[in-house]
């Protein structure tokens, strides 16, 4: 975990294109970015600026077309699909705008899911999931299915699912996008405290300036490149 000079994440000239020939669309046009451990970064930008694309690539849910993505100095773009999955399993936590919980499955079972794929024994799994739910303030809601929970609660379950594996970085793609502003602020408070208390590195995509205000650093994307990268309440 020690930071020995290598940044947690480093992107160099990262590109992503869809389609071919004349119909080719460049979603990312050479992105350079470094994220140090313990940072809380907000990525902003208009629709189609490539901010979600970069998130998906960082989360190993998508693959870049060109350039380099280093995770703790490892070239992720050179990994096989299986290795990327394992990277996801052991190091990354992902929170989506649309929650993406398993339907008809209780909160605790949703949270246990990543541990199940890690092969954690049942009792330990259960304990860890309960602790993660407690951390997001959902003690007493363990047996409820997503349909029985509010949007804010569902996002908390999703955050608990991302936290339960004790990831190196939490990637959140518009985590407050489907929530009203009060629930959104509650989620942001939760992320801030996770960053402050546990030193969890957080990378968050958002549309909302208020939400971005919670981060230490705001990066602005335009047309698939980083347009501005400033410190927010912290010296660069």
């Amino acid at each position: 975990m020690a930071n020995n000079g290598t940044p947690l994440i480093e992107l160099a000239g990262l590109t992503k294109s869809y389609g071919e020939g004349a119909a080719q669309i460049m979603a990312l046009n050479g992105v350079d970015l470094r994220v140090e451990e313990g940072d809380f970064v907000a990525i902003m930008g208009p629709s189609g600026s490539g901010k979600s694309t970069v998130m998906n690539i960082l989360g190993c849910l998508d693959t870049p077309t060109g350039g380099a993505y280093l995770f703790r100095g490892v070239h992720v773009e050179r990994l096989t699909s299986r290795q990327r999955t394992l990277l996801r399993r052991y190091f990354l936590g992902f929170v989506f705008q649309g929650f993406n919980l398993l339907a008809r499955t209780s909160a605790i079972e949703n949270v246990e899911l990543p541990l199940l794929y890690r092969g954690v024994p049942k009792a330990e799994r259960h304990q860890a999931a309960s602790a993660a739910l407690a951390q997001v303030g959902l003690t007493g809601w363990e047996k409820h299915t997503p349909a029985e929970l509010s949007g804010g609660q569902q996002q908390r379950v999703a955050i608990a699912r991302a936290l339960v594996t004790d990831p190196q970085i939490l990637l959140a793609d518009e985590p407050t996008g489907n929530l009203d502003s009060r629930r959104g602020r509650e989620i942001m408070d939760l992320l801030v405290s996770l960053n402050k208390d546990r030193g969890l590195t957080i990378l968050m995509v958002t549309h909302d300036h208020d939400m971005a205000g919670y981060a230490h650093r705001v990066i602005r994307f335009v047309d698939g490149v980083v347009e501005r990268d400033d410190a927010n309440g912290r010296a660069l």
Partner: peptide, 8 residues
């Protein structure tokens, strides 16, 4: 979802 949380 399963793939995203690390299922092979």
């Amino acid at each position: 979802i399963r793939l995203a949380v690390g299922a092979l």
